[in-house]
Design a protein around this nucleic acid. Sequence first.
RNA 1: GGAGAGGUGGCAGAGUGGUCGAAUGCACUCGCUUGGAAAGCGAGCAGACCCCUAAAGGUCUCGGGAGUUCGAAUCUCCCCCUCUCCGCCA
Length: 426
Amino acid sequence: MLDLALLRRDPERVRRAAARRMTGAGFVDEVLTLDVQLRAARTTVEQRKAQKNALTAQIGRAADRAAEAGRLRPEIAALDAQIAAAADAMPGLEAQIDALLADVPNLLDDSVPDGASEDDNVLVRDCGPPPELPFAAKPHWEIGEALGILDFDRAAKLSGSRFAVLRGAGARLSRGLINFFLSRAHERGYTEVVPPFLVSRATMWSTGQLTKFSDAMFRDVDGELFMIPTSEVPLTALHRDEILAPGTLPLHYTAYSPCFRKEAGAAGKDTRGLIRQHQFEKVELVWLTEPERSSEALERLTADAEALLQELELPYRVMLLCSADVGFNAAMTYDLEVWLPGQQTYREISSCSNCTDFQARRSQIRFRREATAKPELVHTLNGSGLAVGRALVAILENYQEADGSVIVPRALVPFVGFERISRNGD
RNA sequence: GGAGAGGUGGCAGAGUGGUCGAAUGCACUCGCUUGGAAAGCGAGCAGACCCCUAAAGGUCUCGGGAGUUCGAAUCUCCCCCUCUCCGCCA
């Protein structure tokens, strides 16, 4: 959520930001108008309440309270009427302001390039031209089904489209990847967490998933618990409504979790293979930092995710998302895209974002610089480190052999316990 | 799921209708003291919001919400959470 005080102080900046996001800026004037009305009403209410409180205190001090109460009752009743009248419009005004503000995305960082679509994302670095395999590379679904480690037909029988069954070496490779990612995160100073995979509406709201993305999430029938679309949600909200003591920051958390997404807006897109599933697995990295250190933190978080791809020896590139492609919560985002030879394309395998104070304001995550200092909002960052299913895809496609078998990346062998996946491998 | 107990400031813990936003202790901050430290002494120490040049002032918050009352941490109702016991279960 944007800072209402900033909107008051510098509406022009908010308008410019909206223009870069290619969203309307009409909300700026709407909010400002409502805000003026709300504050006027609030001031009146508070003044009348102060008068009333003074009279009430007078009764409390009186020798004969009953008599004093009787004497002042008409005056107090008159004030009550004025308070009620002035307060009448306030809940409506507050609700309108909240509703408008709740759907406004974060301000973009100055370094985010302007752009109209993902085609305008900027290449930051890559590993040179992607290596060519000496034979016709197959897509992972063909490799996986031939090896008996991916089974989409039976998954469809169990759950419908956009699900997969991993079997034998595929399941073990997936587990090994999770372990590898978590171990590396631990080595780099992240505290591992096993969070709830179902969270409350309030938690979902606090990290910016609601109300704008409610269509994207699975929830229980009462609608009170939501299946997390990423463990960014519980990790970021871990310190919701807290004031962190001096010396606490930065905090680094990592969690493995399944992630659940309806993919409602993706009909017909990525329908083959493991790329876009209703359920997938991910190891997430989350930072909470002081505001002035979040830019540097994004570089380090991204480097942590990149190190995993480097160690797996997978070709990838780093893209700086343009203004049209940066997500709702983020001020700036790097996507790591891994090369998939079977599909002759790069695909996102990690998205690393600096959400500045946007989620922290919704979540009320604050810190003190000194024991006596006023609380300030933290900055939150998150990134995948990495998406497990897509990493598995990348390994199958990049490490496939002409005979249909797949070599396990060297770094991963200690984690999975085998060096090659062959037909009917378990 | 059933029964009971309880939710007060960073922590502990008073407070059962009236100067209570809240005693006291601990922790913390600043100062005095000291060669330095401890102890001791003095002062300070919740958050949000409104108003505002500043100073000062005001409103709200004792799990959340609604109610009774001139006045609620304190009384009533609903909800949430925690703990104990029983049941069930991985």
